[in-house]
Amino acid sequence: ETKSLTLVLHRDSGSLGFNIIGGRPSVDNHDGSSSEGIFVSKIVDSGPAAKEGGLQIHDRIIEVNGRDLSRATHDQAVEAFKTAKEPIVVQVLRR
């Protein structure tokens, strides 16, 4: 079962304390579909994302501050987090 969660993150020394993997390839599949998503791959101990109620590894990131990342490329997702103003509201899907 997958549930949708909304989390609020604040940077600590400029970092949110997690890494992402995935992202849509720069070239779409011929039918326009994509199974890619942006997923949390690593969480830094005691970083902002590790706090209670924070992110978990394998969370799929859907949205950052209202910006849809469900079909974003990896670079677009990285840029969305880099430029996001605080508080950073992150919507994820968690299995």
Rank of each mutant, 00 (worst) to 15 (best):
R94N: 02
E63Y: 07
I62N: 01
I43M: 05
D28L: 10
T6A: 09
D28T: 12
L69G: 01
V92Y: 01
S4H: 11
P25E: 12
K51W: 07
H58A: 13
K85S: 09
H30R: 11
A50D: 14
D28G: 14
S35M: 11
I61V: 06
S4C: 13
A72G: 05
R11F: 03
S35L: 10
Q91E: 09
I20A: 02
I38Q: 01
V92A: 03
I61N: 00
S70Y: 13
K85H: 10
I62S: 02
D45F: 05
H10K: 15
R67H: 15
V8C: 12
G23L: 06
S46L: 07
N19C: 07
G47I: 06
D45Q: 09
D59G: 00
N65M: 01
E63I: 04
V44H: 14
S33T: 14
R60A: 03
A49L: 09
L5D: 00
G17D: 05
R24T: 12
I88N: 00
E63C: 11
L16M: 14
S41N: 10
G17R: 03
N65H: 01
E36Q: 09
V40F: 03
R60K: 10
A72W: 01
L55K: 00
K42W: 07
L69I: 11
D45A: 13
H30M: 10
S15C: 08
H10N: 15
S33Y: 10
I38A: 02
R60D: 00
V27L: 12
G23Y: 08
V27F: 11
G54Y: 07
I20P: 00
G22W: 09
G54F: 06
K51E: 09
G17M: 05
F39R: 05
H74R: 14
D59P: 00
I61L: 05
T6W: 05
I43A: 03
H74L: 15
L9F: 09
N29I: 07
V89G: 03
K3C: 10
V90G: 00
S41V: 04
I20R: 01
R67S: 08
L69K: 00
A50F: 07
D59H: 00
G53W: 05
G54H: 08
I57N: 06
K85F: 04
I43H: 02
E36S: 12
I62K: 03
I38V: 08
I21Y: 10
R60G: 02
I62A: 03
E86W: 04
L55M: 06
V27G: 12
N65R: 00
I38M: 02
K42Q: 15
V27K: 11
E86L: 03
E52I: 10
Q91H: 12
E86N: 08
G53Q: 08
F39T: 05
D59S: 00
R11N: 04
G14Q: 06
L69F: 05
A49K: 10
A50E: 11
I57C: 07
R11M: 04
